[in-house]
Design a protein around this nucleic acid. Sequence first.
RNA 1: GCGGGCGUGGCGGAAUUGGUAGACGCCGGGGACUUAAAAUCCCCUGAUCCACGGAUCGUGCGGGUUCGAGUCCCGCCGCCCGCACCA
Length: 859
Amino acid sequence: MIRRAGRTSLMSNSRFDVRFDPGQADSRWQRAWDEARCFEADSNSDKPKSYVLEMFPYPSGRIHIGHVRNYTMGDVLARYKKMRGHEVLHPMGWDAFGMPAENAAMEKGVHPAGWTHDNIATMKAQLKQLGFALDWSREFATCDPEYYGHEQALFLDLYEAGLVYRRESAVNWDPVDQTVLANEQVVDGRGWRSGALVEKRKLNQWFLKITHFAQDLLDGLGDLEDWPEKVRLMQENWIGKSTGLQFAFDLSNGESLEVYTTRPDTIFGASFVAVAADHPLAQGVAASNCDAAKFIELCKQGGTTAAELETAEKLGFDTGIGAKHPFTGEYLPVYIANFVLMDYGTGAIMAVPGHDQRDFDFAAKYGLPIVRVIAASADQADAPLTEAEAGDGVCVNSGFIDGMSVAEAKAAVIARAESEGWGEGKTVWRLRDWGVSRQRYWGTPIPFIHCDACGVLPVPKEQLPVTLPEDVDFSTPGNPLERHPAWKHVDCPKCGHKAERETDTLDTFVNSSWYFLRFASQPDDKPFDKTEVAKWLPVEQYIGGIEHAILHLLYARFWTRALAHCGLLDVTEPFASLFTQGMVTHETYSVREKRKDKIAEAFTRWLEPSEVRKEGGQTFEIATNQPVLVGKVIKMSKSKKNVVDPEDIIADYGADAVRWFMLSDSPPERDLPWSEAGIEGCGRFVQRLWRLFGQYDPDATGEDKAVARKMHQTIAAVGEDIEALSFNKAVARLYELTSVVEKAQPSASRSEAIAALMLMVAPMMPHLAEEAWSEAGFDGLVSTAAWPPFDPAMLIEDEVTIAVQHKGKLRDTLTVAKGLPKEELEALALASEKVQRSIDGAEVRKVIVVPDRLVNIVT
RNA sequence: GCGGGCGUGGCGGAAUUGGUAGACGCCGGGGACUUAAAAUCCCCUGAUCCACGGAUCGUGCGGGUUCGAGUCCCGCCGCCCGCACCA
């Protein structure tokens, strides 16, 4: 199976005589791969194709260990697929627009472009050091004008297709810095720099009609069998299809108010009506009532996020208006409430405290009635409610729907509303259109021009790209594009009079919504070529963090559909299989210190792992020798200093040991705790394999059945494990084979197993594998060699160990020939001395025999 | 608050999906080699009891189904992630 050429003796002057030296081997093989250009994908190949993609990184400065884990997983799969004869596309690029570049500009006075390009250079060098099998010929950064220019063209295509529009929408406004803040820049309702109370302010902004594809995006989830169930569920909940009743309350002031409810079955339990603070009704009340206006102002303070709105104390303002209940005719009070969202449904709700916790909290606070209208059974109609009960049951205290199930009552109430003409059944989506406007510089300029006479006009396509101006000033907060003297002012493309450019840029999620298409095909004159893309898409395996489970992945699915809708693409689902990997974690180290200026106030000083020393179960700070508090194992973060720099550990242990550590022990979807002892173990294993590889002897003779069987079993299992991305299991099996081969006497089987090990570790430890492969005298690169075959006949053991239980407890084990009939197994089990002692003369009532597994005797 | 996930030795985890719990690795202990150290190799390592043959307990907690439960069902507890302008 393996041909060998060249050297005939390994006995002398071999690299195997000394320890494996990653310091010189790593870079030598990295150069060899570059020179051979062996990882560049050929679109015209007739091999089966594999598109392996990891989420491209934001160039934040340096590669962190999370990147290393992510890209190592993808790399193992890409290298494995190549060895299995696939034409592999495994590209890399840079998600290069975003806020940190502007923050650096403000803090350090560097230009975002320069900062970003420096970071890319650093990080690319770091990725190269890890030996990833990437097709660098397809590399790009989203901040390249070529890339974002094509993105602008696509944006205009979507505009022509009616999928882009403008409307008013709220942003976080910092009144001191006079700037728009991202949610993460709002801390406890205050601007992170100014500390000013953040306000909600309305701006005209650009939106993409993702809701047009809501049903399609939902339906598509059903076909994504190779996506984690939890991600599909999260997206399903995010899209949030609900059917309910939309109806109008007649108000005591003569007007009417549309509300939407998903629980029309609880309509008889409605005890008040609530509208959002920015609902027109609330605005109307505020116009003549300054208390109401004050309350609305209060609601504007604080964050805009759902989590903040829902955890904030429920507050309301009684408008004094009454809403007439459609069945009882009773008037319910209408409140303005801080927990009602204008963006969902009609921005107004009927509140049923008995069966919705938010309504319950509100009713309890304001002394409103809490009525039970759903009960476990009809005789429980008056059971007291101590909290909202959202579960199933039958209707009680509910007039004509009494006794109906929740589902029946929903249908009955909708039917009645429709026949009486005051309401209708309606499907409502939680999914909202995607706001893509950002009031920032470092992003894709939105290619539109505002003309007083002609309105909002797209930039003609032949004038693309609209490039960012380079001479910008970050000394004052806010968007530099707004105050740029020249860039902003242009002539109207229609009437030729003076007009202004749109100064908003696109959300960076737009950049990452089509980058996988550009990797597959990158012509100069258009974003991508449809037929070329069709050769590579969908991505066979997409790998990234769970934090992208909803937004990025939903936006990319939407964008792909939208482009297909415009006739630019034939695919609708970009990622056939998705894998979400866990984080890399580390324990934290801190010392509590007393501040000199504030003696009473202790504060925490965090220490880096390199600043502490462990001794006799205790941990000390190296510099001061004082005891260190060892904290929880949490995600590595700069603020807690529990970080390790990949470059440092590569320097200490070599790329292969780092890669091996990333794959070992923890299942890839779970968190991986970083440990110094663990990486040391990996470094030892690299040397252990190296010593074993040095024992490869092409002239060895003789068969060793046990070694051969173990090798075939391992080849079969490791292949399956890699395909399932169960790298930790593949690693464990390779350890097992290594141990077996080490202990075996020299034989042809043993040498064959050593060669197979070189091939099997090649995707994981490519530098070591190349060095051993060439040193053992094999031709060519191991990276382009074929994965070793296995013989299915060799997988089957001829002996099995049978568990013998008495009353479900293990009493003995028997080693027998595989496939022994039930009767014989039973007889052997009953003959066991240990079993007889346990039975102790009792009557055997039943014997359960599972062939090749166990015998259970019941007395 | 809503939605999602995860709990197995000192630690990371494995267990053919209802069939020998703890594979494999790390840590720790003992030994070999060495003048010594490093490196390497061998043995032990869930808890308790023990007559040294073994016994009992044990997969977050409490119930249940089953000849048999880490795995299935019901109810709790704890921790983690996401929540639309971080990427």
